[in-house]
């Protein structure tokens, strides 16, 4: 509820610069994908202008904060805004998890001729017509229904390799790393609340370090998949769900890592954040906990079962 004067910013050129950058970004991305001349140049320009715009926009917000323009009420707007933004991210991942559940519980069994809706396929197969005969309802789907040249056959999946190989199973290490990073970011928060900037900087630095290690291991896993397992985006539905879910998660880890790094720089070099006033950091840490929760879901649904 409103008590006093709410800070309404003066007109600003950042939003429309951001809109133009976004336009260049997507035109460039579309052009690159479709093989239009100079598409990638436009894409890079879009990236650059977007980055610059966001830098100045956030800088202005921070300056306004330091100038004491934001009331408790405005801070609440940022808090609510961040919470709803994370909710929208949850729904984005929901679409991909939904696809995974649908494929595993319905599409693949039906394609293998199981159940009421699989009956037509089973019937065709019984008639001796070569219609995806031999396709089995297994997960991970290694052999696709159409075994032709269109798909790259993977030798191996990313699923649990058995207890004898558990130590070299990267996802387990990644889980440990990401869960620990959620703990370290919490310790950083506690340090800040207790008024210890040193503790805050150290724990936050550790968090960023863990994030970088996570991303490195994720890259190593992808390399392994492409180079040794034959598991690619082109390996049918298992590769599709695996790479899209882990890929989007990895991208979000990267974003969260950038956010936390900015907070670290702000604290180390500019002495930002007060004991009772540090929502910029809190927002980044919320985001970090969010990517952590998504990883736990991924670990469970993509890697284990």
């Amino acid at each position: 509820m409103s008590g006093g004067n709410y800070y309404v910013p003066d007109s600003s050129r950042y939003p429309i610069f951001a809109a133009v950058s976004l336009f260049l970004l997507v035109m460039g991305a579309g052009g690159t994908i479709n093989g239009v001349a100079n598409g990638s140049t436009v894409l890079y320009i879009g990236f650059a202008t977007m980055a610059v715009t966001m830098f100045f926009w956030f800088r202005t917000v921070v300056q306004e904060h330091l100038a004491g323009l934001d009331s408790a009420q405005l801070k609440k707007s940022y808090v609510f805004g961040m919470a709803w933004f994370i909710f929208s991210e949850v729904m984005f991942f929901g679409a991909f998890f939904g696809a995974l559940f649908y494929v595993r519980n319905f599409a693949v069994p039906w394609l293998a001729g199981e159940g009421e809706k699989g009956a037509p396929i089973a019937f065709v197969q019984e008639m001796g017509v070569d219609f995806w005969t031999g396709f089995q309802n297994t997960w991970p789907v290694i052999a696709t229904p159409d075994a032709g040249d269109a798909y790259e056959m993977a030798d191996k999946s990313m699923a649990f390799p058995g207890w004898s190989h558990v130590a070299e199973w990267l996802p387990l290490w990644n889980t440990i790393i990401l869960l620990s990073s959620s703990v370290t970011v919490h310790f950083a928060h506690l340090g800040l609340k207790n008024g210890s900037r040193k503790a805050f900087n150290r724990w936050l630095g550790a968090t960023v370090g863990l994030a970088v290690i996570f991303l490195g291991l994720q890259a190593a896993e992808y390399y392994e998949a492409y180079a040794h397992y034959g598991l690619t985006l082109n390996s049918g539905i298992y590769g599709s769900t695996f790479f899209m879910l882990t890929g989007f998660h990895g991208f979000h880890v990267f974003l969260g890592c950038c956010m936390l790094s900015v907070m670290l720089v702000r604290s180390v070099f500019f002495n930002h954040f007060e004991t009772h006033d540090h929502f910029g950091f809190e927002a980044a840490s919320w985001y970090w906990h969010f990517v952590d929760v998504v990883w736990v879901m991924l670990f469970f649904f993509v890697y284990i079962i």
Binding site: A99, A107, Y151, G236, I237, T241
Partner: peptide, 19 residues
């Protein structure tokens, strides 16, 4: 090259309609 909506790769065009 993914096959979310392509039955030949183990996906399903009906999945698109659900989403």
């Amino acid at each position: 090259g993914t096959s979310f909506f392509n039955a030949a790769g183990g996906g399903d065009p009906v999945l698109f309609q659900h989403i």
